[in-house]
């Protein structure tokens, strides 16, 4: 099954990163696989019949669900730049009974940049790497006098960036403004498990009473959110994976799965629009990360996550970006030659 749209989407991403390594992911290229478990909250099953939100007991004892998690840097460059301003990813695979699985893919940005395929292609075009233009001292003074924020200085060693293009795109497209604004100052976390990750798209969950509810998911770190304050000339660019290994040897890390329930009038099909914090929020469960996977090829690089890998009880919304991701992830998987998504009709 060759999907021309999916192919164009993946190509457009690859074009943004000239040092793309064909054997690797075109984006979120650098990452680390982690093993852990997920335990649904007491109330989760009253909202959703999906298997991972049920409380499973074996001989009276609660059995949590095994999970594989991949944390990643957003960039499509195969080089590690942990200390750079970048969106991070957290893809979770819940391993269900009988070798089945479901994925929940999240990132540290609360909203997406665009609303659909055509906008995405435009956006990636504008995000092509261009030589970093450091703002001149004179321009900076001009900015200050205009009460504008001078452009941030690029980190040392960064000669090319898509920042100027994305800013220009945002100034021409309102829907992209929030995500671009946030992404511009998102920074770098001190640890992969000290950031909030948002699944961004709306899904519909089905309760035991048959009620369908529009929801959005977020992972909230129990350890709290912290970004680095490292403003040195040469920030450490290789620490996130080491930090995670060190941390998990000593102590498991936990993340809380929060689910927000949308109301009539909330953006259901548009991932660029956030939902207000005034919506009902439900604790759906706790993720416990136990150790960095021993086999990083099998449990990291060769895994293929897909936001559309869902189980009965969770349905995708009509969000065109979500739909496009389904096929783009599948296209990308094929190029990398890794395990197929079982759900896609051939």
């Amino acid at each position: 099954m060759d999907d021309p749209v999916a192919k164009r989407l993946v190509d457009s991403i690859i074009a943004d990163f000239p040092d793309h390594d064909p054997g690797k992911r075109p984006i979120h290229t650098v990452g680390i696989g982690v093993k852990g478990t997920f335990e649904a909250s007491e109330v989760a099953r009253t909202y959703c019949i999906a298997e991972h939100f049920q409380i499973k007991r074996v001989q009276g004892k609660r059995v949590p669900i095994p999970v594989t998690v991949r944390f990643s840097n957003g960039s499509g460059s195969p080089k590690r730049h942990d200390g750079w301003n970048d969106v991070r990813g957290m893809a979770v695979r819940f391993h269900l009974a009988g070798d089945r699985a479901t994925d929940l893919i999240a990132m540290t940005l609360g909203e997406f940049f665009v609303r659909g395929v055509d906008e995405f292609l435009d956006f990636t075009k504008s995000a092509r790497q261009t030589p970093v233009k450091r703002e001149s001292a004179l321009r900076k003074i001009g900015d200050l006098l205009s009460l504008m924020r001078p452009l941030p200085n690029p980190p040392p060693g960064q000669n090319q960036s898509g920042d100027a293009g994305t800013l220009d795109y945002a100034n021409k497209h309102r829907f992209a403004q929030l995500a671009v604004f946030q992404a511009g100052m998102i920074g770098a976390p001190v640890s992969y498990v000290r950031a909030v990750y948002h699944a961004v798209h709306t899904f519909f969950i089905v309760g035991p009473d048959g009620v369908r509810r529009p929801v959005r998911f977020s992972w909230k770190p129990v350890a709290g959110v912290q970004t680095t304050k490292d403003t040195s000339k040469n920030p450490d660019n290789e620490y996130l994976q080491e930090e995670l290994r060190r941390r998990l040897k000593e102590w498991p890390a936990r993340m809380m799965l929060m689910m927000t329930i949308g109301e009539a009038g909330d953006a259901l099909d548009d991932p660029t629009v956030p939902w207000p914090a005034r919506r009902v929020r439900v604790v759906m469960g706790t993720l416990t990360l136990k150790k960095v996977a021993e086999d990083q090829v099998r449990d990291g690089e060769k895994l293929s996550f897909n936001p559309w890998r869902l189980v009965p009880g969770i349905e995708p919304s009509a969000d065109p970006t979500l739909k496009a991701r389904r096929d783009a992830y599948e296209d990308s998987r094929k190029r990398r030659g890794v395990t197929q998504c079982p759900f896609l009709p051939e």
Partner: peptide, 28 residues
């Protein structure tokens, strides 16, 4: 699908800076 990724070119290679660049850096 995070964007904002950035990439380097000629990393590790020390660039030859003239005094003009030096002055620009200081001013900056």
């Amino acid at each position: 699908m995070a964007r904002n990724g950035t990439k380097t070119k000629a990393e590790g290679g020390t660039s030859q800076k003239g005094w003009f660049d030096w002055l620009g850096d200081k001013l900056d």
